[in-house]
Amino acid sequence: MATLENKRLPLSQLAPGQEGVIVAIRSHGPLRRRLLEMGLVRGEPIFVERVAPLGDPVEYVVKGSHLSLRRRDAADIIVELNEPEAAHDA
């Protein structure tokens, strides 16, 4: 069983179909402000919708709205992975 510690990772490492909960935003300056106003705040779930044809940027869903972030920028957002109901053994 993975510990909580293990499940913390940069948003950029999530694959399409995965969902995480934002735990920290390490971006600075205008990007940080833009992320906040687009609804990327701590405790918010964020879902990876798809990757652009050329591999970057990536489309995410936050608060029901779709937005695109470059991988470089998503790397500064730390999320906790939400396991997609894998706990069938319960």
Partner: peptide, 9 residues
């Protein structure tokens, strides 16, 4: 350095 956060309406 400019930010590219794009809403897909």
């Amino acid at each position: 350095k400019s930010v590219f956060v794009l809403e897909l309406p």
